[in-house]
Amino acid sequence: MKVSIKVNGQNYTRDIEERTLLVHFLREQAGLTGTHIGCETSLCGACTVLLNGNAVKSCTVLAASADGTEVTTVEGLAKGNELHPIQEGFWEKHGLQCGFCTPGFLMATVQLLERNPNPTEDEIRHGLEGNYCRCTGYHNIVKAVQFAAAKMRGEAIAAD
């Protein structure tokens, strides 16, 4: 079947099998390999993207169901060379190690901070329960999100 999905502002029209998962569409049809596959039970969150502005696990959406939608992946987060504050936060606070789960965390954080611009530590931890990280113990991910939240609120960033 023919499916058209606008990814990061660019239209991708592809002829695919009906059963193709959105994550496979993004990686294999659109060639956007920043979105990762970490599990098959919709729990790890590595495949998180924004679908019409909502953070979703792209391994649990059929590409067919996403026909006509707009998707933002990690590749679409920065504006040209200017990093998104969330990307900056993860870099600044060492919120990643192997980097595999990172795109999912970044995209989930976009939604988290959109809904709650000034989250407490508990709210950050609860808000990111849909994403697994095996490297960081989440400590610096929390710091990264706090950094990004402060920056997005326009606050001066305090040094450690």
Binding site: T35, V74, E75, L77, L83, Q87, F90, W91, L96, G99
Partner: peptide, 15 residues
């Protein structure tokens, strides 16, 4: 190494 990981430009085997 982080800029490539936070922009989705990492290069893992499955990529």
């Amino acid at each position: 190494e982080d800029p490539r990981f936070i922009t989705g430009a990492g290069n893992y085997v499955d990529d």
